[in-house]
């Protein structure tokens, strides 16, 4: 698998995801600076977490108009897989590659903790390593992660099975207590209709190493590496 990681000036999870990708496929991804307009020939593009451009306007809003993201959108349209994690998910939503919006958390505070999420669909190159309905534990760390979409969009997402991950309790129930940020329907991650783009708020790259207490994020990188080998 050849992968590229986009680096904005305020990205801060670029190294973390590069480490997870290298573990999964044996070689390091290409790091692509935000001012680039060309991308190398890759199978996977990762938009990492962080505070791209400081996120002073609205998380992901400025990044969506960066030179590199126009190229990412073109590649995505051509079928290249795109994974957006945390701030990367916010960027993908702001570019319109995924629907809806990510709003300030319900409690109006940054939230950093390990949460349970349920794999809603194992039918994608990103989630092939999980089982449908599997409950996994991943860290979250964000201030603007409350997923919002209008009713029609939500219905479409549900009808087409495009919700990738949902916040749940340890035993798999969707409820307010298990929802860390007030996301509608507990949505933690989404696919595009072709399932070639995934955006999610939790950080699988921080749960890909036994020393860190969880390896629940590892199957995502492993299944990508296997599918895109």
């Amino acid at each position: 698998m050849k992968a590229a990681v986009i680096v904005f000036p305020g990205s801060n999870c670029d190294r973390d995801v590069a480490v997870a990708l290298r573990q999964a496929c044996g070689h390091a991804p290409v790091m692509v600076w935000h001012r680039e307009t060309e991308l190398p020939d890759v199978d996977l593009i990762v938009v990492p977490g962080g505070f791209a451009y400081g996120d002073y306007l609205r998380a992901g809003a400025m990044s969506a108009h960066s030179p590199v993201m126009r190229t990412v959108a073109k590649r995505a349209a051509a079928g290249v897989r795109v994974l957006g994690i945390c701030n990367g998910f916010q960027v993908l939503v702001e570019t319109g590659m995924l629907p809806g919006a990510l709003m300030t958390n319900r409690d109006l505070k940054f939230v950093s903790r390990a949460v349970h999420v349920r794999v809603e669909s194992a039918d994608s190159v990103f989630t092939d390593g999980y089982r449908d309905g599997q409950v996994i534990r991943l860290p979250i760390a964000h201030h603007e992660g409350s997923y919002f979409a209008d009713d029609n969009t939500l219905r479409t997402l549900e009808d087409r099975g495009l919700v990738a991950f949902r916040y749940v309790s340890a035993d798999g129930a969707v409820n307010d207590d298990a929802n860390p940020n007030g996301s509608q329907s507990g949505i933690a991650g989404l696919f595009n209709p072709e399932r070639t783009v995934l955006g999610l708020m939790p950080h699988p790259e921080r749960a890909a190493d036994p020393d860190l207490g969880s390896t629940d994020g590892r199957p995502m990188f492993a299944s990508l590496a296997a599918a895109l080998a």
Binding site: C13, R15, F110, V111, A141, R206, D211
Partner: peptide, 14 residues
């Protein structure tokens, strides 16, 4: 307090 601090970024927090 500490849930308002990102404690896991850099993926080396044991």
């Amino acid at each position: 307090i500490w849930e308002q601090y990102d404690s896991t970024v850099m993926a080396d927090t044991v």
